[in-house]
Design a protein around this nucleic acid. Structure first.
Length: 287
DNA sequence: CGCCAGGGTAGAC
DNA sequence: GTCTACCATGGC
């Protein structure tokens, strides 16, 4: 093992790491000794912002610049996205001004994202985080950086190999253990190819349909996975918070459509970046 | 103790 | 299509 490396990533656009990670829909970031500690694609990474750059430390020789640029979606023209959303809706325009640094992340492991959102049902954010971390600690590999100890997230193969016992013992609740096993089986059977679904040639509708083919994955969880890990920016996850925000801002005097109808209304109203609008509405409710 | 929480499902109308 | 009970655990 080589010594840890310290590098700096040049951002080249308005960016605030603390704001990005605070609003991030990724449950694996921790504070550690003045750094943000996270596990990305099996790498333990420490990051912090220095001026207009992001400084990071990691053990890997692999090109983490590319990984982080993809993760933070620095390839998005965020100014153009904000302009497009603002021109479509007055409320969203005000939220863009209020939270200019909020971003969607492109999570590198759609399987981890899937398990995370299966864990998210009827749970608070710290509880979701604890469940995901418990799974990693139980079945992942230990990784260290400086004095920090974390765990990689186990692949579906590992989850299948150890069988249903370990997840059951974690007492995840609401049949979450069985739902995770079921999703892993669909991946093994080739019925759920998450990596292929992350490609642009697989459209949002197909990705969502395939995700919902899993027992325990409905509209909301499918939209979360599509938005945060499968690069489908028109996805619009409707949870209790977003539903309330929509009722307050857009359906005060009208009857609010339910389920899929509301998602389609949002996609028509907000356009191809509906996911960013969703992120703004959700974050504002949390705030 | 009672209540509710980033959902999903099956069974009842 | 819409409503309801149920699934389980932890925090308040």
């Amino acid at each position: 093992m080589t010594d840890p490396l310290t590098r700096q990533l040049v951002i080249g656009q308005p960016f605030c790491l603390d704001a990005v990670l605070e609003g991030a829909q990724d449950f694996r970031w921790r504070s550690w000794n003045g750094w943000h500690s996270g596990v990305l694609s099996g790498n333990l990474i420490h990051i912090r912002q220095i001026g207009h750059r992001v400084e990071y430390r990691a053990d890997s020789d692999s090109d983490l610049d590319i990984l982080l640029r993809r993760y933070f979606r620095l390839d998005d023209d965020i100014a153009a996205i904000h302009a497009d959303l603002s021109s479509r809706d007055f409320k969203i325009a005000s939220l863009v001004k209020k939270y200019p640094y909020l971003r969607i992340l492109r999570q590198p492991d759609p399987w981890e994202c899937t398990v995370s959102y299966i864990c998210s049902a009827l749970a608070k954010i710290p509880q979701i985080s604890e469940k995901v971390e418990a799974i990693a600690k139980e079945l992942g590999n230990k990784i260290k950086l400086d004095g920090d100890v974390r765990y990689t997230f186990p692949t579906p193969e590992v989850v299948l190999e150890v069988g249903p016992g370990p997840l059951k013992e974690l007492k995840l609740g609401l049949k979450r253990d069985r739902k995770i096993m079921a999703a892993a089986k669909r991946i093994r059977a080739g019925k759920l190819n998450l990596c292929r679904m992350a490609q642009p040639q697989v459209c949002y509708a197909e990705a969502k349909r395939r995700l919902m083919g899993c027992d325990g994955i409905g509209d909301k969880i499918a939209d979360c996975i599509a938005l945060f890990a499968l690069d489908k920016l028109e996805a619009f996850p409707v949870d209790t918070w977003v539903e309330k925000a929509m009722a307050d801002y857009f359906f005060l005097c009208k009857k609010q459509p339910a389920g899929d109808e509301l998602v389609m209304w949002a996609q028509d109203h907000f356009g191809k970046y509906a996911g960013y609008a969703n992120q703004l509405l959700f974050h504002d409710q949390m705030d």
